[in-house]
Design a protein around this nucleic acid. Structure first.
Lengths: 336, 336
DNA sequence: ACTTGGCACTCAGAGACGTCGAGTGCCAAG
DNA sequence: CTTGGCACTCGACGTCTCTGAGTGCCAAGT
């Protein structure tokens, strides 16, 4: 049904259209890409490709443009992701290597990705769900106020002020701190509720009300922060392209955490690259593609990152950048 | 030179242009705003206003449009900021009141501001420079690694991992923690370097190397974080207006911390509202105005926030929203 | 059976042209 | 100083034509 030449034609159309942003005709194709056949032959192939829905023409007698289905075929079978050049790899390493804390890592990552791909980059903070407690800190601020700081093994720091029902002594706070750390150290966040469930019962009676209050705030924090934090960068790159869909929609999507989450894709099994093209996306963001990947330290996926751009983006380059950055961020997180 | 009626005409022109986004002619003016004079008279006034540079016409025989100078006069002398309605105040209080930590406060603030003004909102994190130490925490992670957590009285939390030259005992860490907090509690961040300068000398000899390392990281953190963090929201609102200047420039500015800082204005003496119109802005963002204000707890200004939009924005409404939000955030921060 | 050149056809885009009307500036009268 | 009248300007809009890129189809060639 689709012999090799037809595939070659499709590939040529995609590549040409991506670089010129203009419908590509049979004449131009025969000229630039030396396919060894005449325009007329190419026209026949094009007719076949169009019939099967891989390409389409904006109006009669204009060139052809790939459809979402065409891009899909291109991504799946016609493109291969070249490895990064040494220089690029260097750039990534230097830029990300300078990060000092988690915020910094995420910030640098999203900017780097935006710059490499010249598109909008999106990075999700490492999920609390999959990380573990590194340390819990209690700080007595006044006699009825304690600050609770939770540090995870991914470097994330959550912090809350707790209003206490009673005044509390420094000793009590110190004791609670010790107890909490003793039983929570290394505990996965998902297991925290179970682990601390009966904790008040094991404490002296006078500490119980305070402990209960603190614990409830702690659990609350865990629940709240399940809604993941997401940042983006490179919105200016949107202005360069004129989206078929209003870029207003895209900008709106970018500011909606929930939408962004769904665009990055439900956390997938593997950390493989995931490409969603045009209408394959939720929320009917027509004309927009998403290239996403999971990242994490070691083998478990902590969160996702990706790039959002027009369907007519340079997939090989984008995919390679996303994959490289995802891998490297994983290493950084594992190392710190 | 500018009698009352000419001012009234200018005001009418600004208001009309803001609401319609079309050059306004003498006829329309005479109709809608009952100025009690004929179009011809208005034309004369317009000619005078144009001569003095307050308005201009895009092309011969189109209506008039305010110039930057015209908006300036309008803002300074012709508009008055109405107080918020009770409902609006309620909305602000409820929305901001629900914030749980500093990140949350800032995030909610910027979104609220974007929504109230239907423009791009920008909020700077409370400056470390002007805040004070609430608590320093040292956590021994391994025997050669300590985590340093710095909590300020504005609720900001900075955190760093410190690699030690020697292994260190839990007791030493505890001692250092106590000493650090004893001498730094309540200390303004700007005074920290001076305060801890001779601290190693006052310690037992065996603790000095560790203390020196930790202190150097602490000081480093202070320096780094002087570069302030800024967030924005409401970029989608940009798409609604068509900027005279490419909105690409605006988007780019939004992602450049340094540029944003300058746009919000060098931290001003008072917390008063500050309006920069079109060409008054740095970086030649023509067609763009900035309405900014300082906010803080009590009387000292901690940071700035504001709104960025087309010069033809509704200044009274915008100014009132910015002022109200700035005040309210100040209260929130003071209270927590 | 596929490829190729030829040819008629289609249609978006650019330019030329005319019309319309909003808005102006000026002037003379009130 | 204000006002109505009037001639003038010029962008916006619609119509028309022309051009050229690109197509589909067909008959001839390999």
């Amino acid at each position: 049904m689709l012999d090799d030449r037809k595939l070659a034609v499709l590939r040529a159309i995609v590549e040409d259209y991506v670089s010129t942003n203009e419908p590509v005709g049979s004449r131009a194709l025969a000229d630039k890409h030396n396919l060894g056949v005449s325009p007329a032959t190419i026209r026949n192939d094009m007719a076949a490709l169009e019939e099967q829905g891989y390409i389409t023409q904006p109006h009669t007698s204009a060139g052809r443009v790939p459809t979402d289905k065409g891009y899909r075929l291109f991504v799946d079978r016609l493109s291969q992701i070249k490895p990064l050049s040494v220089a690029e790899r260097r750039a990534i390493e230097t830029f990300l290597g300078g990060a000092v804390d988690l915020d910094d890592v995420v910030m640098r990552t999203v900017r780097l990705l935006a710059q490499l791909t010249r598109q909008v980059a999106v990075v999700q903070y490492p999920s609390l769900t999959r990380s573990a407690v590194r340390h819990v800190e209690l700080v007595r601020v006044t006699d009825r106020r304690v600050m609770l700081v939770l540090i995870t093994n991914t470097g994330r720091v959550e912090q809350r002020t707790v209003e206490l029902p009673d005044s509390v002594a420094e000793d009590t706070v110190a004791h609670l701190r010790a107890v909490l750390n003793a039983c929570l150290d290394g505990c996965r966040l998902t297991d925290v509720p179970a682990t601390v469930g009966d904790l008040p019962d094991r404490l002296p009676a006078e500490e119980r009300p305070v402990a209960a209050t603190i614990l409830s705030v702690l659990l609350e924090t865990l629940v709240e922060k399940h809604e993941e934090k997401i940042v983006f960068a490179g919105a200016a790159n949107l202005a360069a392209v004129d989206f078929s869909v209003g870029l207003r929609d895209v900008l709106e999507a970018l500011e909606e955490q929930v939408v962004l989450m769904r665009l990055l894709g439900e956390t997938s099994e593997s950390s493989a690259l995931h490409v969603r093209i045009g209408s394959e996306n939720p929320y009917g963001l027509r004309g927009t593609s998403v290239v996403a990947a999971g990242y994490g330290s070691g083998d478990k996926e902590l969160a996702r990152l990706g790039v959002l751009g027009p369907t007519r983006m340079d997939y090989p380059v984008t995919m390679r950048a996303v994959r490289a950055v995802a891998r490297y961020v994983g290493q950084i997180l594992a190392g710190s």
